[in-house]
């Protein structure tokens, strides 16, 4: 066989000698610049193997002379970020929530931290925008079951409500229906009275019938006028905000079961600084007192 490559008569280029059904492949050299870039890449990759982590071994991998490690870099960055926050965190740890709110720098830091901590810990029940849901209070409004001052909020976050912590805020509304303290008709009348207190459409005769019932069973906690009592976490029945709904059926169910939502204590789960940040954040949502 002729050792010289065949020359294609049309293009004048060499062929590779490969032939498929009479179609021959031309042997066109690569453009030089392309070839040199390829060689440069190969040289570069060898340097890369030496300098950087490259080859997996049985246990571990070649670490490279440059000592680069993404994991360590992340660790370093986190440590740096922690160190950068250290001063502000130390200041937060020392200051009271009132002092934090009074200092613009600390406030800004606490707000940012509080927003993140709220998303991680509080949003599952209270919602991402703290808008709450049925049974979970809206933290944006000015209606507070247990008080809306900074200290009150801090206390609630620290120890929770009806939680397992010793210092927890706790109160229990009797289960007037389930424990057969009141009859169904009485509960229905009471519900009409509660609707009347908040200025909603109601059956005036039933509400009138329920007035003595309200004084005997409800006024101890909710007050004679239904204004509630924050010492006991008894909601204000005269305002426009309903934690468990303001329809008659909802009110009847509240009287029957006593409700009694639970919030966990966060002391022990979150550090004191984070709880202060959360307190300031919640206070700033618009309802803080």
């Amino acid at each position: 066989m002729d050792a010289r490559p065949e020359i294609d008569s049309v293009t004048g280029a060499e062929t590779t000698g490969h032939e498929w059904d009479g179609i021959k492949e031309l042997n066109q050299p690569l453009p030089k610049w392309w070839l040199y870039v390829l060689y440069a890449c190969i040289v570069w990759s060898i340097g890369y193997w030496v300098a950087y982590p490259a080859w997996p071994l049985i246990s571990g991998y070649t670490r490279g002379l440059a000592g680069y490690s993404q994991r360590e870099t992340v660790g370093q960055r986190i440590a740096e970020a922690r160190a950068a926050q250290g001063q502000a965190n130390a200041a937060i740890a020392k200051a009271s929530v009132e002092e934090i709110q009074a200092s613009p720098d600390l406030l800004q830091f606490a707000m940012a931290g509080g927003r993140a901590a709220f998303g991680d810990n509080c949003a599952p029940c209270h919602g991402r925008g703290a808008q709450g849901a049925k049974g979970y209070p809206n933290l944006n409004d000015d209606d507070w079951l247990w008080g809306g001052k900074l200290a009150d909020i801090q206390q609630t976050v620290l120890y929770g409500i009806r939680s397992t912590a010793g210092e927890t805020r706790a109160s229990a509304m009797p289960r007037f229906g389930q424990d057969q303290i009141l009859e169904r008709g009485q509960i229905s009348d009471l519900a009409e009275q509660v609707l009347a207190l908040s200025g909603n459409p109601h059956d005036a005769a039933a509400a009138e019938r329920a007035k003595p019932l309200f004084a005997d069973n409800c006024a101890a906690c909710h007050g004679e006028t239904g204004k509630g009592n924050r010492e006991l976490g008894a909601p204000d029945l005269t305002d426009a905000i309903w934690l468990y709904g303001g329809a008659k059926a909802d009110i009847v169910r509240s009287i029957e079961t006593g409700r009694g939502g639970v919030m966990p204590a966060w002391a022990g789960r979150l550090d004191a600084g984070t709880i202060k940040k959360l307190t300031v954040y919640v206070h700033s949502l618009g309802g803080g007192q």
Partner: peptide, 18 residues
């Protein structure tokens, strides 16, 4: 305008937007 919550009902029934 705030999108979450869209509006907040206050205890006296007034509506607040952020």
């Amino acid at each position: 305008a705030d999108r979450n919550p869209l509006f907040v009902r206050l205890s006296d029934g007034s509506i607040r937007n952020g």
